[in-house]
Simulated assay, not measured.
Amino acid sequence: RHKKKSDGSFERYKARLVGNGANQQTGVDCGATFSPVVKPATIRTVLSIAISKSWCLHQLDVKNAFLHGNLDETVYMHQPPGFRHPEHPDYVCLLKKSLYGLKQAPRAWYQRFTDYVAKMGFCHSISDHSLFIYHHGNDLAYILLYVDDIILTASSNALRDSIMSKLGSEFAMKDLGPLSYFLGISVTRHSRGLFLSQKKYAEEIVERAGMSSCKPSSTPVDTKAKLSGSSGNPYHNPTEYRSLAGALQYLTFTRPDISYAVQQVCLFMHDPKTQHMSALKRIIRYIQGTINLGLHLYPSSVNKLISYTDADWGGCPDTRRSTSGYCVYLGDNLISWSAKRQHTLSRSSAEAEYRGVANVVSESCWIRNLLLELIVLLRKLHSYIVTM
Rank of each mutant, 00 (worst) to 15 (best):
L94T: 06
K96L: 15
K96D: 08
K97N: 08
S98W: 00
L99W: 09
L99E: 15
L102D: 13
L102H: 08
K103L: 05
Q104C: 01
Q104F: 03
P106V: 03
P106G: 05
P106S: 10
A108S: 15
A108P: 00
Y110L: 07
D115M: 13
D115Y: 14
D115H: 11
Y116E: 03
Y116I: 04
A118F: 02
A118H: 03
G121Q: 05
G121N: 10
F122G: 00
F122T: 10
C123S: 10
C123D: 11
I126S: 00
H129F: 05
L131F: 15
I133T: 09
Y134M: 03
Y134R: 01
H136E: 04
G137I: 12
N138M: 08
L140Q: 02
L140K: 01
A141E: 05
I143K: 00
I143E: 11
I143D: 07
L144Y: 04
L145F: 12
L145P: 06
Y146Q: 12
V147E: 09
D148V: 02
D148L: 00
D149K: 07
I150M: 08
I151G: 07
T153V: 11
A154R: 12
A154H: 14
S155I: 07
S155E: 08
S155Y: 02
L159W: 08
R160V: 12
D161E: 12
D161R: 04
I163S: 12
I163P: 01
M164W: 07
S165C: 07
K166E: 02
K166I: 06
G168A: 09
E170K: 10
D175T: 03
L179Q: 11
Y181E: 10
Y181D: 06
F182E: 06
L183H: 05
I185N: 04
S186C: 14
S186V: 09
S186P: 01
V187C: 11
H190Q: 14
S191L: 06
R192Y: 02
R192M: 02
L194V: 11
F195Q: 14
F195R: 14
S197D: 14
S197K: 05
K199N: 14
Y201G: 01
E204D: 14
I205E: 15
I205W: 10
I205N: 00
I205V: 09
E207M: 07
